[in-house]
Amino acid sequence: MVYAAEQRPPLLVGHTLEGVLTAFCLVLLGLVGWGTWWLVGRALEPVRQMRAEMAEIAASGLSHRIAVPASGSELNTLIESINRTLDRLEHAREMERRFASDASHELRTPLTGLRTKLELALADPEAEDSALAMRSALKDAERLQAVIDDLLTLARLDAGARPEPRRVDLAELVTGEMEQRPSRHEVLMRLHPGVVVRGDRLQLSRVLTNLLANAERHAAGMIEVNVCQNGDDAVLEVVDNGQGVPEADRERIFQRFTRLDTARSREAGGTGLGLSIAREIATAHGGRLYATDRPRGEGARFVLRLPLSGDVETPPGGTGDAHRLGKPGRARRG
């Protein structure tokens, strides 16, 4: 018996509903996929441009920079960081190129002189005193060895070699160095006792030696060496009464192979690396080395500041002992 009946909707007849739902889902998924692809592509468009510009930089050189878009997106900070990194890389590459050029020139000069002297001596052995020729050749060999030694020192410092630090009394360091080092100028020492730092004694002695050698080349007759405490810093000063260093060149002189008076420095045996090595050692010991004005009169003043050793009680300031060394070397108390 059939009490009531109603005709079934057409969508429910057969597989019509399944087909319609499947087609709708496929269209919807297609629209969602296309929209996602379009949005992601638009969002990654700056990255694609960055990749293209980085490829251009790799092909053309480090002088090119990535353009910063005006949209103010979050990628702007990344692009600016990349550009700053490229600036540092370009600067490092330029410094490396200049250093290689200067080093090859500094090595070629004594080698050329040495070879010329030997060739002349062999060509005409009786033209001049053989001992004189050998002494002249020895000077070139010594200069060549000095350049190589300085280059090796810089290479070790650049590689980050750090020996175990020990307690070093700066006044004792200066006194010991001056007793072994003759000077053609009068040397006045003002040394405060008990100014102790932690570091490598040989490297700190190298800093002092390089500063004294620089002062010897440019002093007019007087060199001062001062050691004192200033706050939490130990201060070592080397002062000369020469022509001084112009303010515009006070950072440039710490660059490698930089000379303000090339002929004079080369004649005196300078390699152009002494101040660079001294600053590298100061930085490795947590300090700094800089050039400044002389307190009175003309001249150069180089200041080395190092952190005081924390395990030593440094006596409060005092005048310290002043010693004056004549030419060369009998000491008398000032």
Rank of each mutant, 00 (worst) to 15 (best):
M1Q: 11
Y3D: 14
A5I: 00
A5S: 15
Q7Y: 12
G14V: 08
H15T: 04
T16N: 07
T22Y: 10
F24K: 14
C25F: 11
L26C: 07
L28E: 11
L28R: 10
L29T: 01
L31V: 13
G35M: 04
E45G: 05
Q49M: 10
E53C: 06
M54D: 00
A58N: 14
A67P: 02
I79R: 06
S81L: 08
D87S: 05
R88G: 05
R93A: 11
F99E: 03
S101N: 08
A103T: 03
H105W: 15
H105T: 15
L111H: 07
T112A: 11
G113H: 04
G113Y: 01
T116W: 11
K117F: 02
K117P: 03
L118K: 00
L120W: 02
D129G: 06
D129M: 03
S130V: 05
M134S: 08
D140E: 15
A141C: 01
R143P: 00
V147W: 04
L154H: 09
E164H: 06
L170H: 11
Q180Y: 12
Q180M: 09
P182E: 13
R184C: 02
R184A: 14
H185G: 02
E186T: 03
H192F: 00
R201L: 04
L211H: 07
A219Y: 06
I223T: 08
N226A: 07
C228E: 14
N230A: 11
N230W: 15
G231K: 15
A234G: 14
L236T: 02
L236I: 02
P246N: 14
R252N: 10
I253P: 00
F254V: 08
F257W: 11
F257G: 12
T258M: 08
T258N: 14
T258K: 12
R259S: 15
L260K: 07
D261C: 09
G272V: 08
L273V: 10
I281C: 09
A284K: 07
Y290L: 15
T292L: 10
D293H: 05
R296P: 11
G299P: 09
L304I: 11
R305S: 12
P307K: 08
S309C: 12
P315M: 01
G318A: 14
G320W: 06
D321F: 02
A322R: 04
K327C: 00
P328K: 14
R330H: 12
